[in-house]
Design a protein around this nucleic acid. Sequence first.
DNA 1: TACATATATTACCAATCGGTTTAATGCAAG
DNA 2: CTTGCATTAAACCGATTGGTAATATATGTA
Lengths: 121, 121
Amino acid sequence: MKAQADTLSATLFAIADPTRRSILARLARGDASVNELAAPYEMTLAAVSKHLKVLEGAGLISRTREAQWRPCHLEAKPLKAVAAWASGYERFWTRNLDSLGDYLKTMEHGGEVKPTSKGKR
Amino acid sequence: MKAQADTLSATLFAIADPTRRSILARLARGDASVNELAAPYEMTLAAVSKHLKVLEGAGLISRTREAQWRPCHLEAKPLKAVAAWASGYERFWTRNLDSLGDYLKTMEHGGEVKPTSKGKR
DNA sequence: TACATATATTACCAATCGGTTTAATGCAAG
DNA sequence: CTTGCATTAAACCGATTGGTAATATATGTA
């Protein structure tokens, strides 16, 4: 596995997979064994185990040993950074999209990318 | 390139790359041409062009034609879904991590942690 | 002990994907 | 046509994914 350079990239990479997000959603309802987590999917247990490894590598889950089970526990803290990062762009989606260009021009007093005497589009 | 199944996955995949996040950050300060966007990086223009294609595929940027330039424009709307998704886990990072298990059990009046019907240890 | 069962990981393999480079190909301006 | 901006094509290589099979690890039983 790659083990992305920075934490945020590792977190985003981990949650970019629908299966892994689904696993996190399941864990939000409580800890679960690998078998339980794998049940809803058609892939093998080994495949799910690998997904868990990715999630664990990103710090999104933790595991303990309980007899022969390895219960998985949600560790949502890395998601805080995701929410924070995305929120940094909030002003871009709360504003009217059509007025965004004007907004930027106002901000920087000259947002032209390229001067053109030709017809604009 | 792959074109992920769902929109959220495509968005998360796109922003999982540090270079692409950096490009978005640059575009937050205003539209820019491909050359401008590529300047800070050591990779070739073609590589940046592909990153832009990924971002465009995720709906995170839009492009228009301005003479021979293709100014890129930030489209942050998909990030709203990212923020919303991550915020769904907010209660897991705002609470004391050690009390999370108890919290869940309280919520669902029986936090089953064990698999199937096998006896726990 | 030894053996069988249940849970989970690891090893190995094939197919695919991602990120990058080089080279070739548009397209618009002058 | 030539030059500059940008995309596309072809190729490389490491990373990811998922499968099967082998290997732990823990429990229970005789």
